[in-house]
Design a binder for these strands. Structure first.
Length: 784
DNA sequence: TCACCTACCACTTTTGAATAGG
DNA sequence: ACCTATTCAAAAGTGGTAGGTG
């Protein structure tokens, strides 16, 4: 509604998800979601991003911009996961993220309209494998995939709208299908990623506004998997995700229940067999054996189960193997109770012939409870997180644990803090809990420009640590990338923690930028520590998700305030910011013509359509080599330091303009190695780009007029419009775009921005829009 | 042989249409 | 006739798991 009012011209205004969905359904699937138009969009976007309009004189925007803050509402939940090593399932059809990103925005101008985008960039250039209870880098990352951005379904909406509610990106889906046509965010399995949220001011519905802010929450980093590797993660997901309720101890789909069902089946079969066959053979084989243990029973049952009883004999030796697989763990996991439950179950089934008797259920539950209670592992493990015991036993992290433990600052006050928290209790809380816990908000780390945050770690809060613990360590500081950017050496590191350390100022700055831009690097962590001494522990290789929870307590909402890129370069960090900007800018859309910058989005409505805009590799990769895991600072190492442990809660504030963060990375040619990044001068990214940065370049090619009056978008929705765009003239790229996805830009400034939205709109109308949000494909693939 | 991916299962939650009541 | 509340069924989201693939 609101949106509608706000954007009268847009018939589709910000709709409810349901509405979008409905439309989608209505629309025949015949339309490809990402028609060429998407490319256009992508093309259009980047440029704009790169050079956000200065809008210096606009009083209305200024104040707010500076204070734009974003908090991660469910930070505590994220921290719980990150302490163990967050894993996200990706499937061909697309899988939602859990936990989802629940954010609180503040500092926006209530009257201005903003677009919220979510993109996910590689956190480093490695591929991982779960070994020895931990994640370890085992090689280089795979080729980049098309960068897609998920547009929050409410976009565009006023600052008042965004600030009046919790912003959730839970509708965004992740897929490993490189040919995905649904617009889901495409990721590689077994890679580490960092979600980013961008707030873009849309002064006019049609154009990008001057303000762009990017936020990164280190604790939201995750590894993509097609099947969970870490049992602790599975437990956390089950306990916190309502949809997985069935897998909880008391759920009907719990291991126990499933086993019980299986047993029942078996028992039924066995009974049947007994009855039917009454064959001595069967009886002797099955029954005689004392069903002392559930396992035995199962084994027996299983053995007989699959193939119907052989006339000759129901029991099959081979079955043993089968049973082994099934049974073995139960005792371990569940303990006696479990076994008992089985026994009871069996007994009942045997006696009654079946299941489901209430009594048995109750008994089971009782048992289960006792199991839970008794099960130390779960609780202990969690809490232990901080300790070595950590979830990531693996390896190399040796000290990490110790270091982490030290880090973990027990903030008594901070209950939210995972560390202090009782894991079990946490678990018990369901999703909602998350929300509650979520109350603890974390602020994003500044990515680019602003490094204002050296705020001391809030003590309270939640906190803690992000996966990146490594990165986190420097919470307060924005680490820039370590001076020495070491080529990534995948093998060594187990989750390479992003190096938190930033050593040199310049580099730091750069690194910061690179963080954003470069996936390769641990975004956050590194950038966080700018300048400080953060120890860079390159050794960090070892662990990825340190158990740390967090040490830092600081709740405080250290809200990251992204610096408005536009107008004000963060003074303090200026140098850094510059680099950061520069690099990014230059590279990202170097090719993009400036005029592009001015593009407006014609139809925001389109966003509803759920399209994905492909931004040419915004985030990705470039990085890869840049930050070798080794380079990452290991949190553990860092801990000892003076720096307060990174606070997860505090995010990196990336105030930077969206463009920077976004653009920079993507554009990096694969070839361009991170190594290059660090040094601006040397870097492949020409300084020239700097000018492009609005903040720095007042004269930036921002042309308000173009943007301002946008004719109603609807009229332009016509698909044909896209054709109008100057198609792409591929702007000369300063930096070769990622090979796979060459960036093509639109020449026509006027149309360019609008196109994306038009496209979106159109898709929405006709394509398979995503009910829950739009996706922008930032990369222009030949495919499209 | 192993690591990884896919499809399917059973379960739960969410969503929207249909219906009933005021 | 209109609006609101309730009910129900379908759709979608979950992790587990067997089987397939390279």
């Amino acid at each position: 509604m609101l949106s509608m009012e706000m954007y009268p011209s847009l018939t589709l205004g910000p709709q409810r998800i349901g509405d979008c969905f409905y439309r989608d359904r209505q629309a025949p699937a015949h339309m490809p979601l990402f028609p060429p138009a998407c490319d256009v969009v992508a093309k259009a976007l980047p440029p704009r991003l790169l050079a956000p309009p200065p809008v210096p004189n606009d009083p209305t925007t200024k104040a707010p911009k500076d204070e734009v803050k974003m908090e991660l509402e469910n930070a505590s939940l994220w921290k719980q996961f990150s302490s163990v090593g967050t894993e996200m399932i990706i499937t061909k059809k697309g899988r939602r993220m859990f936990p989802g990103l629940r954010l609180k925005l503040s500092g926006l101008n209530p009257s201005l309209r903003y677009i919220l985008l979510l993109d996910i960039i590689p956190a480093d250039n490695s591929r991982y494998r779960f070994q020895g209870g931990g994640w370890q880098a085992v090689g280089g990352a795979e080729a980049r995939l098309p960068d897609r951005v998920f547009i929050h379904p409410d976009s565009p909406a006023t600052g008042a709208h965004w600030q009046s509610r919790t912003i959730s990106f839970h509708y965004a889906k992740l897929t490993n299908n490189t040919l995905d046509s649904q617009g889901h965010i495409i990721l590689h399995s077994l890679h580490r990623y960092q979600p980013r949220v961008h707030v873009i001011e849309a002064r006019d519905v049609l154009r990008w506004g001057g303000g762009q802010h990017s936020f990164v929450f280190p604790e939201t980093q995750f590894l993509t998997v097609t099947a969970y590797q870490n049992n602790k993660i599975t437990e956390l997901k089950i306990s916190a995700n309502p949809f997985a309720k069935g897998f909880r101890e008391d759920g009907m789909n719990s291991k126990k229940q499933r086993d019980a069902r299986q047993k029942r089946k078996i028992s039924v079969l066995t009974e049947t067999l007994d009855i039917v066959n009454c064959d001595p053979c069967d009886s002797t084989e099955l029954l005689p054996q004392p069903i002392t243990t559930s396992t035995d029973l199962q084994a027996l049952a299983l053995a007989s189960l699959p193939p119907l009883p052989d006339p000759s004999c129901g029991f099959r030796p081979e079955g043993a193997s089968y049973q082994d697989t099934l049974v073995p763990e139960q005792p371990l996991d569940l303990g006696q109770a479990f076994m008992a439950s089985h026994m009871s179950d069996i007994g009942i089934s045997m006696a009654n012939g079946m299941q489901g008797t209430p009594g048995s259920e109750v008994a089971n539950r009782m048992i289960e409870r006792s199991d839970t209670m008794g099960e130390p592992a779960y609780t202990s493990t969690f809490p232990a997180v901080q300790n070595n015991s950590s979830s990531f036993p693996s390896a190399p992290l040796p000290q990490t644990s110790s270091s982490f433990s030290s880090l973990s600052v027990p903030d008594s006050s901070d209950t939210s803090n995972a560390q202090s928290m009782d894991y079990p209790s946490i678990l018990s809380s369901s999703p909602t809990l998350s929300s509650s816990s979520t109350t603890t908000t974390t602020t994003p780390s500044l990515q680019q420009t602003s490094f204002t945050f050296p705020t001391p770690p809030p003590s309270n809060s939640s906190s803690p640590q992000p996966l990146l613990s490594s990165s986190s360590p420097s919470a307060n500081h924005y680490h820039t990338i370590p001076e020495t950017i070491i080529p990534h050496t995948p093998t060594a590191a187990s989750f390479p923690a992003p190096s938190s350390t930033c050593q040199s100022g310049l580099q730091d700055q750069i690194s910061v930028h690179s963080l954003l831009t470069h996936p390769g690097q641990p975004l956050l962590g590194e950038s966080m520590t700018c300048g400080n001494n953060a120890p860079s522990d390159q050794s960090s290789e070892a662990f990825i998700y340190p158990n740390i929870l967090s040490a830092n307590p600081d709740p405080a909402p250290v809200t990251a305030q992204p610096l408005p890129n536009n107008n004000h370069p963060p003074a303090p960090s200026l140098p850094c910011s510059l680099h950061a900007h520069v690099a990014p800018t230059s590279f990202a859309f170097s090719s993009v013509p400036q005029h592009m910058q001015n593009r407006s989005f014609s139809n925001m409505s389109s966003s509803y359509a759920h399209h994905a805009l492909h931004l040419p590799n915004l985030s990705h990769q470039g990085q890869a080599s840049t930050f070798p895991p080794s380079s990452f600072t290991h949190p553990s190492s860092s801990f000892p330091h003076p720096h307060p442990p990174f606070q997860p809660s505090s995010c990196l504030a990336v105030s930077s303009s969206f463009q920077q963060s976004v653009s920079s990375v993507p554009s990096m040619p694969p070839t361009a190695h991170p190594q290059n990044l660090p040094n601006p001068a040397t870097s492949s990214y020409p300084p020239v780009e700097i000018g492009a940065i609005p903040q720095f370049n007042p004269a930036a090619p921002y042309r308000p007029e173009m943007v301002l009056h946008h004719p109603s978008l609807l009229p332009q929705l016509d698909p044909s419009l896209s054709s109008n765009l100057p198609s792409s003239t591929p702007p000369p790229a300063l930096y070769p775009a990622f090979p796979s996805y060459p960036l093509r830009l639109c020449q026509d400034p006027h149309s360019s921005l609008s196109i994306p939205f038009r496209h979106l709109y159109r898709q929405h109308q006709h394509g398979h829009a995503h009910p829950q949000g739009s996706y922008l494909d930032m990369s222009t693939r030949a495919v499209f």
